[in-house]
Design a protein around this nucleic acid. Structure first.
Length: 685
DNA sequence: GCAAGGTC
């Protein structure tokens, strides 16, 4: 992207100066000046206008149904100016290849690393851009109010570029605000800064790199593997192949089990089982020797009894990803469904904005009116009343703050919702009330016993006060009653056995796990993760079975194996790739590297990989022929495939299951359910 | 058709 830097950017030319740069501007307004403010989204524009004008503004419609202009007077440095507050709708522009390279057959995919790109304003944004151009005609100053994050800076750059088409030399201010609160907003208005050109360039770099690499690898794969997969229209995207699985080899182990059964009058007998401190042994002879000693001297001695207070912490304030993580687990909906419903609840005014990273409440946040509102609810009204009557405790503070929105919380009362809407609303309310409550309290007893040379342990838990658990029903803290043991006490175990089992592979990923992993690896953002997961499923890299678990398709496995064989697994799979790009982007933001430099370096890295893949494409083909199996994928889709290397879902082993089981193990190792001849698919004719 | 980032 090339926009002509205005006068205030000129001293940025030496990027070495960047780190010492004071971005403050001296806001000089002459009488009757006009300021055009542009926010990132309509909500923010309205909110800021309300604050600056103390809700005294005139509203004007634009060519876009969502975007409005808010007109009011505002005083900066004792000078009153006429302000117009408007917004865009996220990014204003995007890039693509020129028509000469758009068609997949039009060029070699490798050309896409070097070909031209063209920037354009999408159809949806045409009216938004037009509004900017119209408004800037009357303006003396362009004041950027986009979100204060990297993409926000980039969007600001796009706005500047569009406005300078009309007024090439208009002065640009940038608002730096820490929260959508009157204090920070007024402060930002009174202390404008400059737009950070380096960050803008970082965003433009990301955009270009994503397009080039995404398109090149995807076209290469799709065009050359198409003949080998059944659905010839299937697009074989190069992304999202991180759904890899470990080679898991099941091992047999042995362990010693001890239990004590207490008979109680008028009650069922109470059985207390103990865990071996060695957990398990992979050597049968060792285990047998230890077991034999226990059997010959079976009298157990209680060597230690410890009692302590334990608490289960209440949850953090609710942010988007947590809503999706916990929501997919507890509500039996997909992340995407949850977000759609949440968006609807927000539009109808029942909950706050559902897309936020913030998991800490502002010091000025007013909890009581919101809690009060919920006291009339049949299910949790009483609990809410309890909070008001003294059980309230300030919510914990998480570590994220997007400085734009508070954590997700209910904003209006309703008990009239049904279906999924009710589920999501209930979740938001219960979470909110849970956050405002106290941690759950319990008494834990740890009993240690010794038999012969061996030590065993058991834990009992009595829940004393459920507190937040009463209303936040999605957390589970189960009490466990054990017999009352005293130190020094001796008893003969009712059970003393040596059992065998096999280590089982890690559980299959749930959507909740997947969201967590993507978050950890920096894949996508809170706004895009649920979308990516949907894409993975749509492209059939994985299936969702039992409405819960994700299993990779044979196609997904084939691609991962194929890239492993080419020797690119480490460098091409998403997380690593992402980190490298991310590091470079930060350097651009710091003024250490330039956009051109990073593009040159990264593109050449990608080109090398690309060349290697082209060179060894046969290995990819082989992998697909070897692993890809239409019939197996069909079984997997229906949830009946061979879940190679994982627990069989149909045995009903829960997701909280131990990592070991004694029910016998199933398949081992890699995805060989489809192993066999090379008769699948058909070679390209 | 392909990417990832916004937002409605």
């Amino acid at each position: 992207m090339q926009w002509l830097p205005g006068p205030e950017f000129q001293y940025l030319a030496g990027r070495e100066n960047k780190r010492n740069l004071d971005r403050s501007l001296k806001p000089v307004l002459d009488g009757n000046m006009r300021v055009l403010c542009v926010a990132e989204k309509p909500r923010a524009a309205k909110h800021i206008a309300e604050i600056l004008s103390q809700s005294s503004f005139r509203t004007q419609n634009t060519g876009n149904q969502y975007v409005k202009n808010y007109i009011f007077d505002y005083t900066v440095n004792q000078r009153t100016a006429s302000f117009v507050m408007t917004s865009v709708l996220g990014h204003l522009t995007d890039i693509d290849f020129p028509s000469t390279h758009k068609n997949w057959q039009s060029c070699d995919p490798g050309d896409l690393f070097r070909s031209e790109t063209v920037e354009y304003i999408s159809e949806d944004m045409k009216q938004v851009a037009m509004n900017l151009r119209e408004q800037v005609r009357f303006a003396d100053i362009l004041f950027i109010w986009t979100d204060c994050d990297r993409e926000g800076e980039g969007i600001g750059g796009e706005v500047v570029q569009e406005c300078r088409k009309v007024k090439p030399h208009i002065q640009v201010w940038r608002a730096h605000f820490s929260a959508m609160q009157p204090g920070p907003i007024h402060h930002a208005a009174q202390n404008p800064k400059t737009l950070d050109e380096c960050t803008v360039q970082a965003v433009m770099t990301r955009r270009e790199l994503d397009l080039r690499t995404g398109a090149a690898f995807t076209r290469l794969q799709t065009l050359n593997l198409r003949g080998y997969v059944r659905d010839e229209k299937m697009v074989i995207s190069y992304v999202d192949q991180y759904l890899r699985r470990e080679n898991f080899v099941s091992e047999e182990f042995w362990k010693i089990n001890v239990a004590y059964q207490e008979t109680r009058p008028n009650e069922p007998p109470l059985r207390t089982s103990f865990n071996w401190n060695r957990v398990r042994s992979f050597d049968r002879h060792t285990c047998l020797a230890l077991y034999n000693q226990c059997v010959s001297h079976p009298l157990a001695t209680v060597t230690n009894v410890t009692r302590k207070n334990v608490q289960k912490w209440k949850p953090l304030p609710l942010a988007t990803l947590e809503l999706q993580k916990t929501g997919t687990k507890s509500l039996r909906m997909t992340g995407e469904e949850i977000m759609t419903i949440a968006q609807g609840l927000y539009t109808e005014g029942y909950i706050s904005y559902p897309r936020t990273e913030t998991d800490q409440y502002d010091d000025t946040f007013e909890f009581m009116p919101l809690i009060q509102m919920q006291t009339q609810h049949p299910e949790w009204g009483q609990h809410a009343q309890g909070l008001i009557d003294g059980n309230f405790e300030t919510p914990r503070r998480g570590s994220n703050n997007d400085k734009a929105h508070p954590p997700i919380h209910p904003t209006a009362f309703t008990s009239a919702l049904t279906g999924n809407q009710k589920k999501v609303y209930d979740f938001v309310v219960r979470r909110f009330l849970g956050c405002c409550g106290k941690n759950a309290q319990g008494d834990e007893t740890v009993v240690t016993i010794s038999i012969a040379t061996e030590t065993f342990e058991t834990k009992g838990l009595v829940i004393k006060q459920k507190n937040y658990l009463e209303v936040y029903i999605y957390d589970w803290w189960s009490g466990r009653t054990i017999s009352d043991f005293a130190q020094g006490q001796q008893f003969t175990p009712s059970e003393l056995t040596m059992d065998t089992g096999k280590t089982t592979p890690p559980e299959l990923l749930t959507e909740s796990d997947l969201i967590g992993k993507m978050e950890q690896n920096g894949i996508g953002t809170d706004a895009t993760i649920s979308d990516l997961i949907k894409k993975v499923l749509m492209r059939q890299y994985a299936f969702k079975v039992s409405q819960k678990f994700f299993i990779p398709s044979t196609l997904g496995i084939a691609l991962v194996r194929g890239y492993e064989d080419v020797g690119l697994d480490e460098s091409l799979i998403k997380p690593k790739l992402h980190q490298m790009t991310e590091t470079d982007l930060k350097l651009i933001c710091q003024g250490v590297k330039t956009k051109d430099q990073v593009l040159r370096e990264s593109v050449s890295r990608y080109q090398q990989m690309f060349a290697q893949i082209v060179w060894e494409f046969g290995k990819l083909v082989q992998a697909v022929r070897r692993y890809y199996d239409v019939a197996e994928d069909e079984r997997r889709r229906r949830g009946h495939g061979r879940f190679v290397g994982h627990q069989d879902l149909n045995t009903g082993v829960g997701d909280d299951g131990d990592t070991t089981t004694t029910t016998g193990a199933r398949g081992r190792g890699r995805g060989r359910g489809s192993r066999g001849g090379g008769t699948r698919g058909r070679p390209r004719g």
